[in-house]
Design a protein around this nucleic acid. Structure first.
Lengths: 158, 158
DNA sequence: AATGTTATGTAATAATGTATCAACAGGTAA
DNA sequence: TTACCTGTTGATACATTATTACATAACATT
């Protein structure tokens, strides 16, 4: 199991993330309900980008007999409150690797094995930000995603 | 009618783009068939991001009785050969504003009026490129999209 | 308890995207 | 010319992703 392209202590990472989420919800009086908690756990468990219907399957395995809107609403809650992101390129969702820190996420997506690694980006500082300023566009949110080959798949490709 | 957020000579811009496309296809022995030409014209005409099914409607108005795969194939051809881009955030397509110049496109998307402006970006030079190098990820393609308010919609919002 | 607000359950359907295969047109080589 | 190869199109069906609509339930405040 990996975060990004590096192995790590996954069980601990889930536990940490869940308790951090609980605290953050408590302090902001957000309701981390059963479905939302379960979806976040699923995302943390899998640690890859999951489609809404993947989530639904996992929810059913966990005893929830849920229809599509349930997954989309839970995902919307998690995304809105910074616990997860949507990877637009994949129409899929992934747990945030930097929860609690306000940031513009950027993703590296391996086209071969579908692993997704998150990093923080500063798109407003670069050429995009300059272009936006020059035409008077006010940036509210950015999607930055790189598609390519992860280190492991580069080796295989040789 | 606008390119990006600026008004311009639209009829001339379409004519130029079409003849440029014809030349480019000829010189690379790509076949700019009837459907492909029509789709490119539609994208240039509208000059906003169009979904595949919007394209299909336009195709039908133009006398093509086309099914979804026709639109997707034509769009795929145009994207692959640099005549159009996919805007991932919108699951939609737009004519390229810099055809002929190899580039990483970036888009500014107004969340109010849906206008899309293209600019060139250099994502590999910024924080994303640095992150990729540090973990050994090989970037092949980037998606850079900013969502926000265009100049006109900012005024309206006052 | 009454009320307003937020969250969930459920069915149906819309919107987006693919797989498959037969038919056809254009080149190319025997 | 004929035969063949390749790429493109036409058409049907299907798969995936996302939303609408409406009813119900849970929670918070008074």
């Amino acid at each position: 199991m990996m975060t990004g392209f590096e192995p790590h202590d996954h069980v601990g990472c889930i536990a940490d993330a869940m308790s951090a989420a609980e605290q953050r919800c408590a302090s902001r009086s957000l309701r981390l309900t059963a479905v939302r908690r379960q979806v976040l756990e699923i995302l943390l468990q899998e640690h890859v980008a999951l489609g809404a219907y993947d989530i639904l399957e996992h929810l059913r395995l966990a005893g929830f007999n849920s229809q599509p809107p349930v997954a989309y609403r839970a995902l919307d809650f998690l995304v809105t409150n910074g616990f997860a992101h949507k990877v637009e390129r994949l129409n899929a969702f992934i747990a945030c690797s930097y929860p609690g820190e306000t940031h513009s996420p950027a993703f590296m997506i391996c086209r071969n094995c579908d692993v997704v690694a998150e990093t923080r980006s500063t798109p407003v500082k670069g050429s995009l930000g300059a272009a936006a300023r020059s035409v008077g566009f006010r940036i509210e949110r950015t999607v930055v995603e790189a598609e390519g080959l992860c280190p492991l798949c580069q080796e295989e490709a040789i």
